[in-house]
Amino acid sequence: MVVQDVTTYDEGKKMDADKTATIKILKECHVFSGLNEIELKKVANLTEEKEYPAGATIYQEGAQAEELAVLQEGKVALQMSLSAPGDRTTGRITVDIVGRNELFGWSAMVDPHVYTLTSVCLQRCKVLSIDGIKLRSLLGANHHIGYQVFSEMVKVVASRLDDTRRVLVSERLLLLNANNSK
């Protein structure tokens, strides 16, 4: 996986300008929209901007979840691997497509910190990557940030669960329709 770092936080004015831009991005993401400027600044300190080309895998299902990300530009497909009897992997099914300002990689915040889906870039993507371990520490130390972030993150998890459930139902619908037409 080739990852090109776009910005690393330097010292001085550039850092402040970058932080302001990062805070703006975080504010536009639902998960962090309930935080005030000081809290956002603390989260912004844990972030890093990254760019991925189309087709790149950002997070691999089953891998150790060390970071989560807010999508700034592009589109990311979240895919689930399907296993046939005998543990033979048959392929991957897209369960959701992440758009701008949406968060993905929430597994980094929840035990056992293993990614449950693979995220594949459908086009050139720019993401704001957040260090999962440091964010967990921040959320543990500051309960207001913790409450705000987790209450919004639960919505993301619930939404993904609902998406997956809908895909499963639609698959069954297809099977039923196929059987009825025979």
């Binding site: 895919q79 099914i93 897209t94 639609s170 698959e171």
Partner: peptide, 17 residues
């Protein structure tokens, strides 16, 4: 994924698959 699932918002994710 199919005509029978057009009304489902997540049915339009089959291209990459």
């Amino acid at each position: 994924y199919g005509a029978s699932t057009y009304n489902l918002p997540l049915s339009r994710t089959g291209g990459l698959d």
